[in-house]
Design a protein around this nucleic acid. Structure first.
Lengths: 334, 334
DNA sequence: GCGAAGGATGTAAAGGTTTACATACGCCCC
DNA sequence: GGGGCGTATGTAAACCTTTACATCCTTCGC
């Protein structure tokens, strides 16, 4: 036996399919007695709306696309959690695309918007593909594309971010206030907007404290554990070592810390370390990691709400969320 | 201007819509010259298939539903990565549902299968809702539901798992072979199938070594960092402490380890610790965590392949993947 | 008692594909 | 030259809803 359709329900309840549809969407405009009869028939037949037919007719997929650079990474998965919460509260379905930061893969997902599979998108990384080509206002029907976290200054109003430069500055300022004068920075990957913003904040803090920039103190990195370990290898070779390091994210800090520890360097006695993000496991380091907290779950939720507001026809307002310095055990006076 | 439809393409190319459709799906049965003309028209108009119409007509959503207990948790997000890889290779779209292990939330997702939004499902947790109610073979069209990781012995052939009891046994056996005789276990959450299986493996290893069970050495837990910390509080109060602990997962082990460390207990000198899962951050502990590796990404990929094979009409074969003991620094002779 | 108004329901079209079946055409062979 | 076959394309129905518009009925005011 095939799945019941709206016709089966209508027949059983002795009404037209229009009435069935109304019972499901605008129950208050149908007479109470009829409504009961119809809903009874719905239960009896085990009827479920066909999503494809509904979306074809109503021109709404009730789905949002989320493009993640790396779905296996905690940082993003916590943002996803926030998105999911709001989406499911709004009755929307969440379609996930893993882009691996590749333009080609991203283009596949652009298509999801073009073929109506999703009503809007949330990008968790700097867009690489030409999302701008999407006919945003075809027939008054906006297809909002919200960027979360990796946001440049020219990204327009559909963005959710923290002030990365200010946050980095606060991190370095914390080290300075502890008395550090030789402060290094382990950067994020090249050509990443966050890398640039955090580096800028680092330099600004040095400037404000009248400390000079030392290019050899700016170590390359790429946000992974490995690059934290690699940074240690470079660090240990420096003739005149920094007394404190600011990492562009926690994962690198943790990679560095475990290697340093194994090599006999004691944190924070020999070296202070501060990370960025406050990921779940930052508190399990030994010592626990001082870091900048990004409200990841809230960032996801805010992005979803922003998208919903645009879908509802409201004018978008960019969201900027607060960061927070979380002082734990990995920083101390030199 | 509205989105181009298949009619627009047909008109521009001077053919019928049937031919356009054929060019897109079975290009080899249309004359080369016609095909070129049509594909040219597709490019020129910027045409994209309407997903809803296609899925309505073809009765296929080209989408798979993935139900996760906690999308923000690394353990699951790495499985998701494996699923995504295979799904996108097969041209399928991935719909994500976060169940929070709640039956009610899960029921929402059951509906996704009933209303045709997805062609099959992958469950990353022991099912709570009545997935079995889904008319699996309506009109020959199977709706496969594959369970990954949290698999009981009566779950049928649509499963991907490791042998949790054997893995737990191997972990404890490792401790025994190092010379430990007083070995404790920090359990997973109650009513979880993995908890039972790992506990069973723990006990079996003791039995085989002729060591007696000591109920006070079986500490309660719930897979979270906090419960690892709580386990430490209980551990430290024990009159006769174990010399080694087997944790039902890495996260608890890490919570325990950082607390223990802060309290001056040295691992592995004072206490050996072994975890389960080999999550990404297990290697950053100090000392690095000895653990059992589960091939999470591969588990996700295998689940997706299993689902695809059923969709292709093949008979399903349950997948059992190998685990691996990863010896690092947190275990040593007593 | 009649007309108007308003509430409840029905009718039918439209949304954009896929695909079974029909048609048209060219070609070969007897 | 006609029957038959194979290839390329067209026609039209079906997939299942939503919704504008039409219809019918009840109620109310005068």
């Amino acid at each position: 036996m095939s799945r019941p359709t709206i016709d089966d329900v209508a027949r059983l309840a002795g009404v037209s399919i229009a009435t069935v549809s109304r019972c499901l969407h605008t129950p208050d405009i149908v007479a109470a007695k009829t409504r009961e009869r119809v809903l009874g028939a719905v239960r009896e037949t085990g009827y479920n709306l066909n999503a494809a037919a509904q979306s074809l007719r109503s021109r709404r997929a009730n789905t949002v696309l989320v493009v993640v650079p790396d779905i296996g990474n905690t940082f993003f998965s916590e943002i996803l959690g926030g998105i999911e919460r709001e989406a499911s509260a709004a009755g929307l379905t969440m379609l996930i695309g893993n882009s691996g930061r590749s333009k080609t893969r991203e283009e596949v997902y652009v298509r999801y918007l073009l073929n109506g599979r999703a009503d809007g998108a949330l990008l968790l990384a700097e867009p690489k593909a030409r999302w701008s080509d999407i006919p945003v206002r075809a027939e008054q029907r906006a297809v909002p594309i919200v960027t979360i976290s990796e946001v440049g200054s020219d990204f327009g109003p559909l963005t959710v971010s923290i002030d990365n430069a200010a946050a980095a500055e606060a991190a370095v300022q914390h080290l300075i206030s502890l008395g550090h004068r030789r402060i290094g920075h382990v950067c994020g990957p090249e050509n990443n907007i966050l890398t640039a913003q955090r580096l800028q904040g680092y330099r600004r803090a040095l400037d404000k404290a009248g400390l000079r920039h030392r290019p050899e103190f700016e170590l390359p990195g790429s946000f992974g554990l490995d690059s934290g370990r690699a940074a240690f290898a470079r660090f240990i070779k420096l003739a005149d070592r920094p007394s404190a390091l600011f990492f562009a994210n926690d994962e690198m800090a943790m990679g560095f810390l475990s290697t340093a520890s194994a090599a006999g360097i004691q944190v924070p006695r020999d070296l202070s370390i501060i990370g960025f993000d406050d990921i779940h496991f930052a508190q399990t380091c030994i010592p626990a990691l001082t870091t900048i907290r990004q409200p990841r779950s809230e960032m996801g939720a805010a992005g979803m709400r922003l998208l919903l507001s645009v879908l509802a026809g409201e004018a978008p307002v960019p969201v900027r969320l607060p960061f927070e310095l979380v002082v734990r055990g990995s920083t101390a006076p030199p």
